[in-house]
Design a protein around this nucleic acid. Structure first.
Lengths: 107, 107
DNA sequence: TCTATTAATTACTTTTCGTAAGTAAGTTTA
DNA sequence: TAAACTTACTTACGAAAAGTAATTAATAGA
């Protein structure tokens, strides 16, 4: 049972950005529009999941997919205005991570 | 294969806060220290997962667990300084959610 | 024709989640 | 004093999601 007293908009926002990989995909697209395989190798996500996440983000109006019928074909993903509006959030996470996150020693 | 070129601290931070429920638990504790069952009913998480998430957050130094041997016994969870430092991030998510998130009509 | 590239999709295994029930320690009720 | 209740967990198990790898479709070049 969910007795939530949270703001539903906030709750939905949290569900969007806290889905695994989604945050990193958005972060990656903040630097510039880019294609599927670039995102994939930058953040180390599998094609299967990247495909899934991009679809979700497109449905949420956060990411926009554009096909350039060049040769070879180029499909570029970029952030919409809604997606770009997440920049301050990402900035805060960067600040927090630099201040507080400690990396474990690798064995 | 993970060819990540991301800052490892940022990546770790993202992994922490984007784990399901974790963000909402932190958000809930920002309003005040509180006990297990209060968090549980506020955000609608099961006991199993809340227990798991609180353990992880305690290990990360974000949440602190304090036992008050009163009668009845009271166990209170609160944010450490590291946890409190996430407040600006949560604030940004609140702002974004109010500006951009649309709720679907319930059927 | 064979190979290469990009953007997906499919098949299969492993991990995580969600639900519900159980436990331990103590408290209140009858 | 026994039964029921509360809190904070833990365990068991089926369902859902993630991870890995192979495959596909479209196009181009050697």
């Amino acid at each position: 049972m969910n007795n939530s007293h949270l703001c539903p908009k906030f709750e939905k926002a949290m569900n969007i950005v806290s889905k695994r990989w989604t945050g990193l995909v958005i972060y990656q697209l903040l630097s510039s529009p880019q294609r599927f395989c670039t995102i994939q190798s930058s953040i180390g996500i599998s094609g299967r999941l990247l495909s899934d996440r991009l679809n979700h983000l497109e449905n949420e109006g956060i990411v926009k997919r554009e096909v350039y019928p060049e040769t070879p074909i180029r499909i570029e993903y970029s952030l919409t205005e809604k997606g770009l509006a997440l920049k301050p959030l990402m900035k805060e996470l960067e600040i927090w991570s630099q201040t507080w996150v400690e990396l474990e020693d690798k064995k």
